[in-house]
Write a protein that binds this DNA or RNA. Sequence first.
RNA 1: GGGUGAUUAGCUCAGUUGGUAGAGCGCUUCCUUUACACGGAAGAUGUCGGGAGUUCGAGCCUCUCAUCACCCA
Length: 1043
Amino acid sequence: MAMEKFDASEVEARIYKMWEEAGAFKAGANASRDETFCIQLPPPNVTGHLHVGHAFNHTLMDMLIRWKRMQGYDTLWQPGLDHAGIATQLMVEKELAETQQPKRTELGREKFLEKVWEWKAAKGGMIEQQARRLGDSLDWSRSAFTMSGAESAPATEKPGNFHDAVLKVFVEMYNKGLIYRGKRLVNWDPHFETAISDLEVENIEVDGHMWHFKYPLAGGETYEYVEKDEDGNVTLRETRDYISIATTRPETMLGDGAVAVHKDDERYAPIVGKLCEIPVGPKDQRRLIPIITDPYPDPDFGSGAVKITGAHDFNDYEVAKRGNIPMYSLMDTKGYMRADGLPYAEEAATAQRIAGGEEGFDEGKIAAMNMVPEDYRGLDRFEARKRVVADITAEGNAVMIGNPAYEAAFARDGDQTEVPQRIPFVENKKIMQPFGDRSKVVIEPMLTDQWFVDTAKIVGPALDAVREGRVTIMPESGEKVFYHWLENIEPWCISRQLWWGHQIPVWYGLDLGVEDEQNPSGTLDEVELLGLLLDGLVHRGTVMHCGTDLEAVKSAFVFDNADVPSPLSHASIIEVADKSEAIDRFAAALAEYNVTQDPTVLVYPVWRDPDVLDTWFSSGLWPFGTLGWPDENDPAMKYFPGDVLITGQDILFFWVARMMMMSQAVLHQDPFHTVYLHQLVRDAKGEKMSKTRGNVIDPLDMIDAYGADALRFSNAQMAALGGVLKISEDRIKGYRNFGTKLWNAFSFADHYAIPYPGDPEMPVVSQTLNKWIIGETGKVRETVDAALTAYRFNDASDALYAFTWGKVCDWYLEFSKPILQGTDTAAKAETEQTLRWVLDQCLVLLNPIMPFITEELWGMADRRAKMLIHADWPTYAAADLVDTDADREMNWVIGLIENVRSARAQVHVPAGAKVPLLVTGLDEKGQSAWDNNHVLIQRLARIESLSNVDRFPKGCVTVPMDGGTFGIPLEGLIDVDAEIARLEKTLQKLAKELGGLRGRLNNPKFAASAPEDVVAEARENLRLRETEESELKAAIARLQELG
RNA sequence: GGGUGAUUAGCUCAGUUGGUAGAGCGCUUCCUUUACACGGAAGAUGUCGGGAGUUCGAGCCUCUCAUCACCCA
């Protein structure tokens, strides 16, 4: 019966179903020892689809998991999904728009979150289905979700407690002072109106402009401006009443707090400490700002003077912090120029007093001030830029240069009245501009109130983990990057102005505390009551408390209020939406109390922080949040800490470092011992894949075309440590062919009707051939184990490819044919058993890389104790299996066959023709090797007979071997000149090698300083080459006689 | 501007304490020989980016230059 062809799509679906239904991937499946081996799958976005990057690293993880599972480890490959705040919210908003449903803001928070959960249930997690096509042996029954257990989750959702973990960690870190609220500059996305992480910002080089403006000195002061060249010669000397500023963002001038120059910049030394004017806004209310020194300005860049807008530029922010310069926010959350606050004239006056040192300031006060003049208020930031440029230019404060067009016009017709002689100095230049990777709008650095993790306080243990070798980062270069980043770590902004995510567990209440306590009576009298009502609650501060839920913070608020007059101190605490509702409710209750004197109507409203946590905050808890924590008694906690993390190097900081910090902060352990980083998967040319380039390779298409095994093999093959990953369809096709080769090896066994009982023991053999292949199997098993232990997936796949195709198929199966067809029943039985055993070993060793085809072939045996996925990984050692004599003999046989074939082909002996073979000087070993294997040799090299001769006849093709020289008598058949040419060429190559070898051996320093075995090897090599050389020379001589 | 890495056969890439270069694909020639044409056999192709140094010996170590890529400002 002939085996059918391998149909990947049919087999893959069937086999995967079989594994999954049998629970083959479940945690602990096939465990025969206590040691655990756990890999946490980096959770893909719930909105995500499988791309080549996933396909790549899933293959590596699956290889390790399958390998360890076969070795009997208690394994867990933990899957799950990330709720992906901004991506998911965007996806759902888009869908609402497309289906003409009410917008997010119209729905309100609660209804919108319902929609998100509906979307998740219907369309989220597509990637989990796609990953199955790859053959991933993930324990799907444990699939986790970073939003599981959230208040908003519907009952239909799979239960989980990730939300508990997130809140518990937040509260603990808050209580330890590791989390705080503050005003800092963050990347702000004006489209989504939220802070976003650095990872979500793409810096793209775009065409921009550099404008040059004059900031006039206060009071019309002047100074001598001198420029010098490298040698100190004066190239320009003029009297100026201004300082020249270059900027790519003129609209931010409105928020300037200073002009900074380098302290060593002689040009500006005379005016440091003086004031200059921001040349924009109403003429009467021009603000004056100080000229300061700071290390940041580069004297060689632009004019060397930099305007400092602390609230809208990251570099300026640092300068402003150093110099205590006010940072005026200019824009609203949508990126429009602010329209709130007091009239500009009043704000400018205040700012002026601050700049002059007559008035103090703090963060809150500055934040409330709107420094945008009325004319620009409410404008889009880019529109405002145009207006600012136009206004400054109109007023004559643009730096002017000669107009090339004027020169040209003058030269042409001597009349240039239509063309201006001088024009504003505007450079066209490439600038790096930040864009939101999802919104595609220009990201605005914005000074906002956000929550931060004080990373500096928790970074220590993560750094130590790598420094002390508890955690290994591969490739090693990742360690440097890791140190560099962690040693210069910035506070981590963890709040996002979104709805989809873990809402920050902090509640605010009105600050009722009275600073100058005038009434220690402890009761609420009429005067105080009115005071509270009229005092403008709006301007009162707030107090806040953190807890896992409202109940948890109530007592803290009650405690706060203990000091306020009774009965207000006993007001019941209620939750409201926000501060304004809180004020309304509070005032209404007071008013009612005033009338009724009924203390039970008094309420103390509190409201929850509307922001949600950065997605990376929750995914930082992934290593234990997936295992039942905070329930430390969950049996799955035995898998913490995990073993290996395999992920893209681009999220080393964003995720890997954070998992390490969070695991240490919460559980005081490292989450894994090894981090394997890989690069971005690119197309065959090494370009990034992108939809716009149209070079995206969909792994599912590859699976459709070539099967999952081929894609996996290709992935394993390109996984050289630290290497660039270029995926090539030709290569995948090549590994599909490899699968077919393996399949046909079984078809071979089938063809020879070799019994296939299944689960064979390693046979005890007497045939050299069988001894040899068993030894080779032992070698490859060691190579594969060593490679996988060292995460050298390419070495493992290389070794298996070379073994299966190059050893088993090319030689072993060919050699077995005469025995299988022969009459020696003992030899035949032994070879049949060996062949089945060897093929079984191929299946076992290849299973981690190509699980489908191997499992299918495994299942064709009459019976199997277990599925291949749970088969026992072999432990035999090459040292026990390799028979050196068999090894030497088979290599000699292979060499002889190859050399005879080569010689035949080169002198164009017809492929089918059987030729006689002669030999001279055959030694004992050669004779015995020939005797043992002549059937194989004659068959594969197409040889009719062997005759011992003293001397080769004229016109004989020579094949020098160790232990005897063979010759094919071909007088009259061969082209003598061509054959001489062939031998000469071989001789030349040989001469080169001999030259090298002799050179080394004749050098006394070589023998003195090189290791002994190297010297011995070189000597032996030289001996063999010299013999070969003399044989070749003799052969050439014979041919020349003939000619 | 800072950092990291790369540059090896026509293409895509390996090459783990320095011992004299390999794979897959592609290409050329031959072969439908009873596992396999998604195959078999044979074959060609490399001053290992340039230069200098250390060494008996350098693709590998050091310096330098060039080009490219990525990350961070």
